[in-house]
Simulated assay, not measured.
Amino acid sequence: MRGSETVAHGTQMRRHLCGIQTAWTDAGEATEAVAAVAAILDRGVVGHLIVFFSPAYEVETLTAALAAQFPGVGLTGCSTSGGISPAGSIDRGLVAIAFPRQGFRIVSGVLTQITRLDVEGAASTVRGLRRTLDHGRPDGGSGHRFALSLIDSLANAEETVVSAVAWALDGIPLIGGSAGDDLAFRSTVLIHDGQVCRDAAVILLVETDFPIRIFKSDNFEPTNRRFVVTAAREEERRVSELNAEPAAREYAMAVGLDPENLSTMSFAAYPLAVKIGGEYYCRSISRVEPDGSMTFFCAIGEGVVLTLAQPRDIVEATRAELESLDEALGGLDLVIGFDCVFRRLDAESRQVRHRIADLYRRYGVVGFETYGEQYRSMHLNQTFTGIAIGRAERP
C-alpha cells in the first residue's frame, strides 16, 4: 500500500506499491536538505537514488552530503527550474526518487564533453551498459526496460546525444530531461556517483518487474502562419532572420506584440513548431538577444520551416494523457515526469497551474521542470514526457 510521512523542514515522503520511495524537501541549504531526506527514507533497501535539486544549492556540498548519507548507493541527479513532487510543485529544494534493489535493476554511465561528442564512443558506452544489465541473464533480461537521460542543457548538444544514445539502445525506449537553473541560463549541472558533471549527460538503463509505459504530451496545434529561417548561427541555436526579416520583429508582428516586450511568457504562449514525419514538435525560444536575434532551446538551422502554434487547454490535454496511462496500466502507481518550464509559465499565465498540480498529485507524478525533454530519438520543447509505472502487485 502507499503511505506517506512528514518530518521537519517541509520534508515528506511516499512509499509506492512498486517499492520506490519518493521524498521531497524545501530546506534552504544542501546539507540540511540531504539530511532531511535521508532521515525519512528507508535507506537499507535503496539501490539507486535520483535527485532533482534547486540551482541555489552549492552542488559540491550537495554531492558530498549525498555520498556520505547514501554509501554504496548509485547516485544521479541534476539542477532544475522547479521540482515536481507527489504533493505538487516545489519552487526550491530537492526531490528524490529512491529505487529499491528488489524489482529494479539499474546501471548508469556518464558521457563527457558532449559539446564535442564522440558519437562512436557514446554508443560504445551505452552498449556497455546494456551488456552489464544483461550479464548473467542469457535471455537478455525478462523484465520491462527503459532508458533515462539527464543532459546539461547549456552544452546545446541534446540532439547529438539523443541520436547516439537511441541508436545504441537498439529499441529500448528513452525518456529524459535537460537540466535547468530557474531561467537564469548561467549554469546547469549534473551529478553522477559522487562527481559533479558539466558539459555532460548521464544515462541510466532500468529493468523492472513492473508494467511500464513511456509517453509524451503537449497542448498545442499548428496554425497557418509559417516562417522560414533565412539566417542562423546553428552552433549557437540562434536565428537572426525569419522570412528575411529581423527574427524578433517578424515573430512579434505575427503574434501581435511589441518586439521590445517579448518575454518568456510570450514564448510560452505562442510557441513555434517544426513538422517531422507528419508530426509537429515544438522549437521553443529561450530568449531575445540584444541584436534582435532569437536563441532557441532546440537545434535550429537555415531553411527550416517553423509554424506558429496555438495552445489547446493544457489542463484537459494533461488530464487526457494521464487518464489514458491510468487505463492502459490498470492504475498508475507512479509517474516520473519531465515537464518543460514553459508549460509551467503558460499554466501560470492562464491561472491554471493549481489545476495541473492537482492532476500531478492525483496520479503520483514526480520529476522536474526542464529546459528540454527527450522522447525516444527526439529532443523536444514545451512537452511533458516520462515513464509511467503501473500498480501491479510485486511478482
Rank of each mutant, 00 (worst) to 15 (best):
V206P: 05
I214C: 12
E234M: 01
S240M: 08
K216D: 10
E236M: 12
G194A: 05
P211S: 10
E302S: 11
A328L: 10
T318I: 01
L322W: 01
M253C: 14
P290D: 07
V206N: 07
F296H: 02
D326Y: 00
R198V: 02
M294D: 02
E250F: 03
A248C: 13
L308K: 08
I276R: 12
D193A: 01
S284M: 03
V304H: 10
L262K: 13
N219W: 05
E327R: 10
A317G: 04
L322H: 03
V305M: 09
S286R: 06
G277C: 13
I203H: 00
V255P: 09
R233S: 12
Y280G: 07
D218K: 06
A247I: 12
S284W: 02
T318S: 01
V202A: 00
P246Y: 10
Y280T: 09
H192I: 02
E302G: 11
P246H: 13
Y281H: 14
S240V: 06
N224E: 14
L257S: 15
T318L: 00
A247S: 12
V288N: 03
T264I: 15
E321Y: 00
E235S: 12
V239I: 06
L272A: 05
L325D: 01
P222A: 06
I314Q: 08
R283S: 05
N243P: 03
L329T: 03
A232R: 08
A201G: 02
R213H: 13
R287E: 12
F210L: 08
D193V: 02
D209F: 06
V196S: 00
A320L: 04
G303Q: 13
P311Y: 06
A232D: 10
L322D: 02
V315A: 00
V228H: 08
T208A: 07
D209E: 13
D326W: 04
T295I: 06
R287F: 10
F296S: 00
A247K: 09
A273C: 14
Q195K: 03
V305L: 10
A252F: 14
A254E: 14
Y270P: 09
T318C: 07
I214S: 11
L257F: 15
P246W: 09
